[in-house]
Amino acid sequence: MTPADYIKQVPKAELHLHIEGSFEPELMFQIAQRNKIAIPYESIEELKKAYQFGNLQDFLDIYYAGANVLIHEEDFYDLTMAYFQHCAEENVVHTEIMFDPQTHTKRGIAFSTVINGIQKARVEAESKWGISSLLIMSYLRHLSEEDAFDTLAQSLPYKHLIKAVGLDSSEKGNPPSKFQKVFDASVKAGYIPVAHAGEEGPADYIWEALDLLQVARIDHGNNCLSDISLVDRLVNEKMALTVCPLSNTALRNVDEIKNHPLKKMLDLGLKATVNSDDPAYFGGYLTQNYLDCIEALDLTLEEVKQLVRNSFEYSFLPEGRKQELIAQL
């Protein structure tokens, strides 16, 4: 069996997916019309053309503009079910979904509206397709730590629905240390900590995420390769990296996919996983990320199996369920 045939058929897990980043242009137009909200694009084609980015900030600008059409519980349900439909088609059997409450609460949308719509879709996807999922509540790092504390407080009535907290948005100039206190409080509240680090930011941000935020996983982490002592630590601690290849090329963090460091990460013993990040914007869902890497990096079947295994092994599933899924590989 070729690596490409294998990845199309095998059960998969995804650990780094922003639900707002799975907002396809067609659905964005549909919900905008339903809610009578104007968006600055005349057609789906024009909107698709805008999905070309020079850097992270270019992407974030359109990402937040698109999120403005999400108003009602039904909208968040539709958004999340559309992503689960892709999971069902690609045999993604477990996914760990990041959501950004502040993107919505800052617009006057209630926290309950956001999470109840997402939760309704989670329940339906498990019932309909057997897809398990959990939620990672991400703090927006371009906002203040005080804002993050407000979000933490709003989340507590829904703590039973949220597994982890994360840190995303504009990395440059917003180090993990800015959020140390709210992460301490989030862990005390029972949440598992993860954080984006080393995507656009330096290796120092990864050190901070490890030492100050005490993260259980690093989201992205590409820039660890500039610091061999950091690589050694990540390998020794078996710290997983949720790598997003098509995202990295779309945002110009990697110039082209053939130069992506994924294979090098595996060679160094890093616990890399493959994920789609914001698939509607970056040109592919989970399987496409694998296929592009298989072709460009000439990944072997064993390397692909290791990547798939890593995604289950470093998920936040209960140990018994992890082993059940790994056994299927």
Rank of each mutant, 00 (worst) to 15 (best):
L268Q: 06
L210Q: 12
N275P: 02
D277I: 02
N55Q: 13
E90P: 00
V92G: 00
F53G: 04
A296T: 12
I192Y: 10
D211C: 02
H18L: 05
S186T: 06
Q102E: 14
F183N: 00
D219R: 10
R233M: 09
P318D: 10
R107M: 07
T105A: 04
L17P: 01
L210Y: 14
F111N: 04
L230C: 03
H94F: 15
Y63P: 00
Y63E: 06
Y139H: 01
K305E: 15
F179C: 08
G117W: 01
A216V: 05
E313H: 15
H196N: 14
V69Y: 06
E96A: 01
E302Y: 12
Q119K: 06
E24S: 12
H72D: 11
C293R: 04
L307R: 04
R217L: 02
A67Q: 12
A195W: 01
D219H: 11
T151F: 07
L270D: 01
P176L: 07
S186E: 04
M98N: 13
L143D: 10
L230F: 01
Q180R: 13
V182E: 03
P25D: 11
N223G: 08
P3I: 02
I118S: 00
S169N: 13
H94T: 14
N310F: 06
K263E: 05
A125Q: 05
Y281Q: 11
E73I: 02
A38G: 05
D267K: 13
D211A: 08
Y41T: 12
I31D: 04
F282L: 08
I326A: 02
L47S: 05
M239K: 11
V304K: 08
L317F: 00
A88W: 05
K188A: 06
I218G: 02
N253P: 02
Y158E: 09
L56N: 10
Y191N: 07
Y205P: 01
I131T: 03
K12Y: 03
K264L: 12
Q52S: 15
Y281V: 06
T105G: 03
P176N: 12
P245S: 12
Q9E: 08
F111T: 07
Y63I: 00
A209L: 03
G130E: 09
S229E: 13
